[in-house]
């Protein structure tokens, strides 16, 4: 994308003069956009990937503004970076920061097909750009933008010449939204009551009849990450929320062991005086 833009800009320099400001902004934005695109592919973390894509989209948006299309540029920023990428990020954050893609091929021959189709797409793009460089003469949007009529002219073309594709796109989007709602909808009127749930618990339809034990907050520490202690002094693993456990379990393993008493140290849970405890052992 950026490569093609670079070529276009060079070709534009031959056909019509590129202003200094435009050239400067291009040489700032193009490396940023390209770096973002490469970063998106090579970043290990899914959220970092998404952030690199945001960088590319922002650079493209600013490029549109420089190329006399301010409305398109700002819509690019509002819709793509503001809404779509934000939803992406939302999902990524919900899925969890530690999840990463597996490198195992799920479909057979996936890589071969990906390579073939990728080369095909690259070929199409190169042909298209080459065609644009040789036989298309850039006109510029000065005439369309005269008197600040950029937005009005876009509106006119969308609702006259391109009405059908526009309506088609909106129909597609509405279908997608309705589909998502149908798939995600659960009938709340059939939800079980508290009584029925309690009966089901005792019938053995759940993992355990009682609710999960509360954490050991305030018993010996004031953190929700402290597990509760069972009557025999061992820890109750279910007492710490799965989210807290998953977030920091690896990094904080030592801390958890210390709290659980696996590492010898002064026993905060001991109720008897120290001398009596020595005698027990």
């Amino acid at each position: 994308m950026s490569n093609s833009a670079m070529l276009l800009a060079q070709a534009g320099a031959e056909v019509a003069k590129v202003s200094t400001g435009e050239a400067i902004s291009f040489w700032i934005l193009a490396p940023l956009a390209l770096g973002g695109a490469l970063g998106m592919i090579f970043a290990r973390n899914a959220v970092h990937s998404a952030m690199f894509l945001v960088l590319t989209m922002l650079s493209l948006g600013v490029m549109y503004m420089v190329q006399q299309a301010p409305f398109l540029g700002f819509v690019q920023i509002i819709v793509y970076t503001g809404a779509i990428m934000m939803l992406f990020l939302f999902v990524l954050m919900l899925v969890g920061r530690d999840s990463s893609d597996s490198v195992v091929e799920v479909l057979r021959g996936q890589r071969v097909w990906a390579a073939i189709l990728g080369i095909g797409l690259a070929g199409l793009l190169v042909t298209g750009v080459a065609e644009a460089l040789t036989s298309v003469r850039p006109v510029g949007l000065a005439e369309q933008n005269a008197g600040g009529a950029n937005v009005a002219n876009i509106g006119r073309s969308v609702f006259t010449d391109y009405l059908f594709p526009f309506e088609l796109t909106s129909a597609l989007l509405i279908t997608a939204a309705l589909g998502a709602m149908v798939l995600g909808y659960t009938d709340k009127s059939k939800r079980r009551t508290q009584r029925e749930t309690a009966d089901a618990r005792f019938r053995g339809e759940h993992d355990r009849p009682s609710p999960l034990p509360g954490p050991g907050v305030y018993a010996t520490a004031n953190s929700v990450a402290v597990p509760a202690l069972l009557p025999d002094g061992s820890i109750a693993p279910e007492s710490v929320s799965a989210i807290i456990e998953a977030t920091a379990s690896r990094e904080l393993a030592t801390d958890i062991e210390t709290v659980a008493g696996a590492i010898p140290g002064p026993d905060a849970h001991a109720l008897k005086p120290a001398a009596a405890k020595e005698g027990d052992k």
Partner: peptide
């Protein structure tokens, strides 16, 4: 800008 309102939203 001719699209000033959008700047704030963006």
């Amino acid at each position: 800008l001719p699209v000033g309102v959008l700047v704030v939203l963006a």
